[in-house]
Design a protein around this nucleic acid. Sequence first.
DNA 1: ACCACCTATATTGTCGACAATTATTGCAAA
DNA 2: TTTGCAATAATTGTCGACAATATAGGTGGT
Lengths: 218, 218
Amino acid sequence: MNQVAAVTTADKTFIKLRDDIVEGVIPAASKLSEMELSTKYDVSRAVIREAINRLATCHLVERKANVGARVVALSAKGLVQLYQVREALEGMAARLAARNMSDEEIAGMQALLDSHFNEVKDDERYYQEAGDVDFHYRIVTGSKNEHLISVLINGLYHLVRMYRVQLGMAGPRVTTAFDEHQHIVNAIANRDEELAEMLMRRHILYSKNNIEKKLSND
Amino acid sequence: MNQVAAVTTADKTFIKLRDDIVEGVIPAASKLSEMELSTKYDVSRAVIREAINRLATCHLVERKANVGARVVALSAKGLVQLYQVREALEGMAARLAARNMSDEEIAGMQALLDSHFNEVKDDERYYQEAGDVDFHYRIVTGSKNEHLISVLINGLYHLVRMYRVQLGMAGPRVTTAFDEHQHIVNAIANRDEELAEMLMRRHILYSKNNIEKKLSND
DNA sequence: ACCACCTATATTGTCGACAATTATTGCAAA
DNA sequence: TTTGCAATAATTGTCGACAATATAGGTGGT
């Protein structure tokens, strides 16, 4: 997923740490010791500190002065708040995508959906993982709004993925979500900003409700 | 504006730098030399680096690996994109405020508006500066959503203020904005989420149009 | 037994020096 | 004169050591 090449060791360390946190290799709510990580990842404490600071801007860790940093704790409340922000930002992204995406970009997104349509039959799980991410990614970048792109792609999406991975999200919503995606693309193709935003907000709201239901069943 | 006490020197340096950037003491689009700032603010380069990193998370500076950091450039396009995000986030904040604010908090906000109403007559300028900030601040915190609070208060609002200060925003919209604020508070008091969000979005949209008009006149 | 205080330990914050990368200047060739 | 390359200067990235702060453990008093 198009990441700007990580040139500096702090970049690489940041990405390694981020992935390990998202995947749960570093447990949620655990304390991050700078010394310990420094030896474990074999870099100086300075780059660990910088990496931790960047993780904090992703809302993946929380840092307290003179105390240290902890990986965020996953909670139902946190999930709800996360999806509330997603609803607001991605709704606006869909609106702006309907305004700013080129016809070529829209065609490309439709092609993506078509190709996914086939894969859904073979392996439903696939769609939930990569397909959904791809779709939302294109909408957000299609908004052409730097703030939206930055906050969502470099920030919240990693936290979203962390919830998905660690709470084992992979539901029967696959085909339903596919239809919702198609309707959103249609609205964007028709340049219907109002509808695009509304459908995207409902899509995310449904998705949240689905996850909440799963949570209460465990 | 309730800021958590800055304990560490990196905190203080960050805040000094942030204010100097917002006020234009450090010009927009200018390059930030770590060495130079280190001598000028009389701290080590390490704390300057950390401060710059935090400024980057506020979207006040942009950093490139092995090249350095620059203060953001102010542009009409940037302003539009900023207000698009504000519209989305503060609209949601108003919705959640209508859901989550206590009756006492709402009463306090109404009292704030009342007190402002008197000051508006004496010094119209005051309201634009402090009053508007206070109002939006209360709505956002009233949403009780950590992500919204963090992104807006610690992030975008400083950029908003930077635009206001450096482009000399202080318009005849004062009393108009006051009425809009009152209507939003009414919607929140009535627990009308839908209306609260809609009014807040229109309020921000108007505000954006007003600023854009000012820009084109200069 | 419990609480307060003090000491010792461990962790984070800050600093200056060195390494790596980028920008600049000067020179030479077309 | 302009273009390309090379050496040099300047800036950022990384490191290990020291200082400041917070945590843990123990001691003494009530």
